[in-house]
Simulated assay, not measured.
Amino acid sequence: MSRKTLAATLCALLLTGGTLGLTACQETAPTASKTPGSETTPIPSGPKKWVDPLGITTEFTTEPSESEDPLNINAQVRLNRVEGAVTGQFENTFARYIVYFDGEPAAPLQWSATGWQDEVIADGSGEPIDLAGARKLQIVIAGVAYPENLEDPHDVPLTKSLDPAITDATIELPFEGYSRFQIAAEEDFPYRVTVLDNPTRLVLDVKTPTILD
Rank of each mutant, 00 (worst) to 15 (best):
M1I: 14
M1Q: 07
R3K: 13
T5W: 02
T5H: 05
A8G: 10
C11D: 08
L13A: 15
L14Y: 09
G21E: 06
L22R: 12
T28G: 07
P30H: 08
S33N: 04
T35I: 13
P36R: 00
G37S: 12
S38D: 15
I43N: 04
V51G: 05
V51L: 13
E59V: 11
T61Y: 09
T62C: 13
E63A: 14
S65F: 04
S65D: 13
P70L: 00
N72T: 03
N72G: 03
N74L: 10
V77I: 10
N80R: 13
R81E: 14
V82F: 07
V82T: 09
V82Y: 05
A85Q: 12
G88R: 02
G88Y: 13
Q89P: 04
Q89L: 14
Q89G: 14
N92I: 06
T93Q: 06
F101M: 08
G103R: 09
E104C: 03
P105C: 11
P105Y: 12
A106L: 15
A107I: 07
P108L: 07
Q110A: 15
Q110V: 14
Q110Y: 11
S112T: 15
S112G: 14
T114W: 00
G115W: 09
W116A: 13
D118K: 10
E119Q: 14
G126I: 08
G126K: 03
P128W: 13
I129W: 04
L131T: 10
R135S: 15
R135E: 15
I139P: 05
I141V: 15
V144W: 03
V144H: 02
A145N: 14
Y146H: 06
Y146V: 06
E148W: 01
E148R: 03
P153C: 02
P157V: 11
K160C: 10
K160I: 13
S161E: 06
L162E: 15
P164K: 01
P164L: 07
A165R: 00
T167Q: 05
T167F: 10
A169E: 04
E172P: 00
L173G: 12
E176W: 02
G177S: 08
R180L: 02
F181S: 04
F181D: 01
A184G: 06
A184E: 02
E186N: 14
F189R: 00
Y191T: 06
R192S: 14
V195I: 10
L196D: 05
D197R: 04
N198D: 13
N198M: 01
T200K: 01
L204I: 07
V206H: 01
K207L: 10
K207V: 02
P209C: 02
T210V: 11
I211P: 00
D213G: 12
D213M: 07
